[in-house]
Simulated assay, not measured.
Amino acid sequence: MPGFPRLPHIGRIAVALTILLTACGAPAAAPIPTPRPLTVAATTPIVGDVVRRIGGEHVQVTVLLPLGADPHAFEPSPQDIARVADADVVFAVGAGLEVFLEPLLRSAGGKALRVELTEGIPLRPFEVEAHSEGQSAGGTELHAHGEWDPHVWLDPNNVITWTHTIEAALSRADPARADRYRRNAEAYRAQLRELDAWIREQVSQIPPERRKLVTDHQVFGYFAHRYGFEQVGVILPGVSTVAQPSAREIAALEETIRALGVPAIFVSSTVDPALARRIAQDTGARLVQLYVDSLSPPGGEADSYIQMMRYNVRRIVEALR
């Protein structure tokens, strides 16, 4: 049978030399090692989302509070202590929101850089509705509580300040990637400025006399100040969702709602709505749930900070206009 044609002698030598040179050639250059991602702990889902927008693929973010958890009542687990102990940076809101953080950091004893995002933001005092101090139930006079309100993120302009703080902290912990953090932060700041303009446009649909907020607890101070709302009542007294109102306080709040014709009560997704639902039924007001201290699950209507704000503003405008 005819076989495959044989290579000429010189051809066989050339093939052999090629194989030999390939086998004995210089080794391939070793790949340049990529710096490991920063390990970051964030106290709340909202903080974690903003940090991810700036850190991108170069940070591994673990969030201490589960979705839907109330930061006022959160108790860290041993796993949270381990996460903080391993972190390069710990980001918190600050201003007293995370009462659990100080003992958690002591227990963790880690090397982490601690960053409080309220640094550089002019804080507003909590405001207490007048009826809880025994004044006229129909009055709308507010006065300072003497404690600082940490819910600064409900004004996107304060989150712009967050981005500068986060960018600086990540760049300090990881100077090699500082330029990437800067570019990400600049892009996100543009989105936040666009969000602020969009909120102003949406709120303009509500007549000024109807921009009255009744909420489950004192959380909308920065939002109200920025966009021209008035906080006329809260369900839970004090500055925490743990406190419970007296029967007299509930009656006074219901009188305020009726006297001012407030059409809606806004309740956070992290707060039990039972009491708010009862007050809504008593007064004929509509009960509207918002995302305030936490985000929705991934794929939900408020699974990022910007989506959360857009969702909340749409619900507020729909309820009050």
Rank of each mutant, 00 (worst) to 15 (best):
P5T: 08
L7A: 11
L7P: 07
P8C: 12
H9M: 15
I10F: 12
I13G: 01
V15E: 02
A16F: 07
A16N: 07
L17P: 02
T18Y: 09
T18C: 12
I19L: 15
C24W: 12
C24K: 10
C24A: 15
G25T: 09
G25C: 09
A26Y: 12
A26V: 12
P27C: 08
P27I: 01
A29P: 10
A30Q: 14
A30L: 14
A30E: 15
I32H: 12
I32W: 10
P33Y: 07
P33F: 05
P33E: 11
T34M: 13
R36K: 15
L38W: 01
L38D: 00
V40K: 00
A41C: 08
A41V: 11
T43Y: 00
T44E: 01
T44H: 07
P45Q: 05
P45G: 07
I46A: 01
D49T: 06
V50C: 05
V51M: 03
R53N: 11
G55K: 03
G55M: 03
G56Y: 05
E57P: 11
H58I: 10
H58Y: 10
H58D: 14
V59Q: 04
T62D: 11
V63M: 05
L64Y: 05
P66R: 07
P66F: 00
L67A: 06
L67M: 11
A69H: 01
H72C: 06
A73V: 11
F74W: 03
